[in-house]
Design a protein around this nucleic acid. Structure first.
Length: 557
RNA sequence: GCGCCUGUAGCUCAGUGGACAGAGCAACGGACUUCUAAUCCGUAGGUCGCAGGUUCGAACCCUGCCAGGCGUACCA
């Protein structure tokens, strides 16, 4: 509808050029938006104001000329007027709105999807927590943002692949092995302590116990090096399995799991280092190998291989991101915790060093989560191994509430997550508010079916029956849904979906509540059919929007 | 010091360069004979951190400052 109207406006400007009533120029930049204030119409454009300077005429005058040149054979517009400093406000013909209702029903689960992504291939990597401990709430936020963003992009016509990068190599894995080995030996009565760098959490003890049950005491007879390696492999595998389970419980799935170790096994890390060395992008200094990231926009050069011969995390990341581009993605997105932001320019630099356009890589930095209980901070210290895991949060507040609340902030804003609030089944909790709409409508449809109304099809009479302002208002809101999804995809901002859902939910609850005026199922068969058609359209959108967020749409509550 | 993010109603937050800046919670006053009150209606609440600039027009863009968070390793 918006596109149709935009076309009419552009044609009007053209025809004003041809008629000579406006001075010919390039088609101006123009916005066509839904005004905040209903009195300003259904759509509003600023085109006359943007043309004012080059035309050297008053915007109101230009607006008038454009309106006079509008040809509208399908009678889309019922009223157009010049307003304020030079806006053109349009009112859409009421029966055009009812066509939206029909589109919702016909497109059903596809309503809201579009092709604005033009099938471009996007890879989105997220969570990617090291397999050295269970997922915590911060990972949970990244998981939901990534998972939902992927769903939104897919709905907008992109081809999306989700990937989890497993850091199963390097020093933190060795530390993990050492920590488990210490606990293992403690279980066998040896007196030794964890060092400060070791992982302190109780889950390390649990892993040592399982290892002991599985392998017996034989690790004590091995050379220490071998025993630590065995502990590391065992622990990383177990922890990764746990992470996968937690993600499944959270409704987050990945198409690919990519391991860091595979980059070493295949020689990819060594190959990129040699390649960059030969091009003098990597150089030696103080016994270490340095990447000239400064030449590619970073603030200083970065170490790739330390003087002790060990590679840094960055080394494998260079090879990893090169690999991503070699897999022919048009766009590569990394979702990281905001505490990694210092890393962005480094990775970006490495991508540019291989000749890829830096705009094809984007890091989304998700701000941290403050966990609260009844408004008071829950103390967490990862080092001491005291933290609330994602699993504990899901178990306590449920997957739907956790996902919805994680999405209810712009990812760039820090998020306060209150465990008590998330559990409350009341006004305070927007999750139930939105889900309740779906349950209520489901119940209406059930009641209607008992009275013989089933599978209502569009009837031309509907546009003459659904004429209350509240009903038109509901339809107008539904018309916006595809735009919301498309914009959410373009700006990569998942929070727009739950905000829209809250708005549609509020409009429905208000409509529903005045049951004397808007009783859906009544003795009037025609009216009942029309209203059932209306509310079931609302249910379709509720169901589609909740599906994007990975939140369930209950039939009853 | 430098870099990234944030600063909007008492609180938590939306807000696409556009017209009178919005919602939820909290506060106050109302609505259950029901297609589910996990709901609705109403009242009140603002120096959009501060100061400049760009623009016909700025919460939004630019510069400076203030405050908070995070980062600033041959750690991950």
């Amino acid at each position: 509808m918006k596109q149709e109207l935009a076309l009419l406006i552009r044609q009007a400007v053209q025809s004003a050029f041809e008629a000579g009533t406006l001075q010919r120029e390039d088609l101006p930049r123009m916005d066509l938006e839904i005004p905040r204030i209903a009195a300003h119409g259904d759509f509003s454009t600023n085109v006359a104001m943007t043309m004012a300077a080059s035309q050297k005429r008053a915007p109101q005058e230009i607006a008038r000329i454009i309106i006079d040149h509008i040809e509208d054979p399908d009678h889309l517009i019922s009223k157009s007027e010049v307003a304020g400093p030079g806006f053109i406000n349009f009112l859409i013909a009421q029966d055009k709105w009812h066509e939206v209702l029909r589109a919702v029903h016909e497109e059903d689960t596809a309503y809201g999807t579009s092709q604005v992504g033009l099938g471009k291939r996007i890879q989105i990597e997220f969570v990617s927590a090291n397999p050295t401990g269970p997922l915590h709430v911060g990972h949970g936020r990244c998981a939901v943002v990534g998972d939902t963003l992927a769903a939104i992009l897919k709905a907008a016509g992109y081809e999306v692949e989700k990937e989890y990068y497993v850091n199963d190599s390097g020093r933190q894995i060795r530390t993990l092995g050492e920590s488990v080995f210490v606990r293992y030996q403690q279980l066998l009565g040896k007196t030794l302590d964890l060092s400060a760098e070791d992982y302190q959490g109780n889950y390390i003890k649990d892993l040592a116990r399982i290892l002991l049950d599985q392998e017996g005491e034989r690790l004590l007879d091995m050379p220490e090096e071998e025993a630590v390696t065995l502990c590391a492999r065992f622990a990383a595998m177990k922890i990764l399995a746990g992470i996968r389970e937690d993600l499944v419980a959270f409704g987050v799935s990945f198409g690919h799991w990519f391991t860091e170790q595979s980059l070493y096994d295949s020689g990819a890390v060594e190959a990129v280092i040699q390649d960059l060395k030969s091009r003098d992008i990597i150089y030696e200094h103080d016994g270490a190998l340095w990447f000239r990231t400064k030449d590619f926009g970073d603030e200083k050069d970065r170490v790739v291989v330390r003087a002790n011969g060990l590679t840094t995390y960055f080394a494998s990341d260079i090879a990893y991101h090169k690999d991503k581009f070699e897999r022919n993605f048009d766009q590569v997105i990394d979702i990281w915790g905001a505490d990694h932001h210092g890393y962005v320019s480094r990775v970006s630099a490495s991508i540019r060093a291989f000749g890829y356009d830096k705009d094809r890589f984007q890091a989304l930095l998700v701000q941290l989560v403050n966990l609260l209980r009844d408004g008071k901070p829950v103390t967490m210290s990862t080092r001491a191994g005291e933290f609330v895991t994602l699993r504990e949060v899901i178990d306590e507040v449920g997957r739907d509430a956790a996902r919805f609340l994680f999405l209810l902030r712009h990812y760039e804003s820090p998020l306060d997550f209150d465990l008590e609030l998330a559990k409350k089944q009341s006004n305070d909790n927007p999750v139930y508010y939105v889900q309740y709409v779906h349950a209520r409508i489901s119940n209406i449809l059930k009641k209607a079916e008992e009275r013989g109304y089933k599978d209502i099809d569009w009837h031309d009479d509907f546009s003459g029956i659904l004429t209350l302002p509240e009903e038109i208002q509901l339809i107008k809101l539904m018309a916006r849904y595809p735009d919301v999804v498309a914009m959410s995809a373009r700006l990569m901002e998942p929070h727009r979906i739950p905000f829209y859902m809250k708005e549609l939910a509020a409009a429905f609850h208000a409509y529903y509540h005045d049951r004397n005026k808007h009783k859906v199922v009544s003795d009037d068969a025609k009216l009942s059919a029309a209203r059932l058609y209306l509310v079931s359209a609302v249910r379709i959108i509720m169901s589609n929007g909740l599906a994007l967020m990975g939140v369930s749409a209950p039939e009853r509550m």
